[in-house]
Write a protein that binds this DNA or RNA. Structure first.
Lengths: 118, 118
DNA sequence: TCAATAGTTCTGAATTTCTGAACTACGGAA
DNA sequence: TTCCGTAGTTCAGAAATTCAGAACTATTGA
């Protein structure tokens, strides 16, 4: 298994972020991770929506999110922990993640700790 | 030629907007239209970047932008005029377009007339 | 009526996405 | 140690999407 690639903050490209979040399943996964803060294993996120996401697809989704710079994944023993890189991204692209999650209706009304409201 | 489809504002879906703007060529076209305000013919936008976009591809790009609700196209004689639906979209998804165009580095520093800075 | 211009649709090749099956990595039990 | 179970990755082929040249349509002006 090759080591997980995480782009540096200065290498983030807006097209990759938009592409990653243009899939509602991926957006739901990311919203969950960003909402809960440091969050869950891949398998815990397998049935957020109306279907059970096959694990190979799920793995691909995480790869896309990771390589867009949206999340950071690290292995802890047998499970993978994923957390969002919202605050880093917000420095580079102010307001972007907040606007996207809001558009998806994924942000709670009360202030979210992992996102600066600018 | 079938009539051009423009979604109603309440039918706009964030995934379609993100997808449409996740292509740098389409984003450049949209930025140009949104920046200039009411803007140009398709062919006038054919060589914004490093290559000349084939006209069939260009036509597809416009269709994607149109069906995502980002632009409104109308035929005036032999040419097509396209203008952005930024202000409508901004009511539905506040800050989204501004954040995306800013991330792409496409917004002038001075205030843009077609976008509300909220 | 004809030619020119601007854009759309068609079509097949190339690319991408999806997902079941096989595989790898790690931890714990025996 | 070895074996087993869990968690996730990679492979591979089918399905879907994208790309762009060629053919087509619509409109204007001569």
């Amino acid at each position: 298994m090759r080591p997980l690639f995480h782009p540096a903050i200065e290498d983030l490209r807006p097209e990759a972020i938009l592409y990653a979040l243009s899939d509602p399943e991926r957006a739901a996964i990311f919203a969950q991770i960003a909402g809960v803060g440091s969050s869950g294993t891949c398998s815990a996120l397998a049935c957020l929506g109306e279907r059970i996401i096959p694990k190979s697809s799920l793995s691909q989704h995480f790869k896309v999110l990771r390589e867009a710079g949206l999340i950071r994944s690290e292995r802890h023993g047998v499970v993978m922990s994923n957390h969002s890189r919202c605050s880093e991204i917000d420095k580079r692209f102010p307001g972007l993640i907040l606007a996207i999650l809001t558009a998806y209706g994924r942000l709670p009304v009360e202030r979210n700790e992992t996102l600066e409201t600018q």
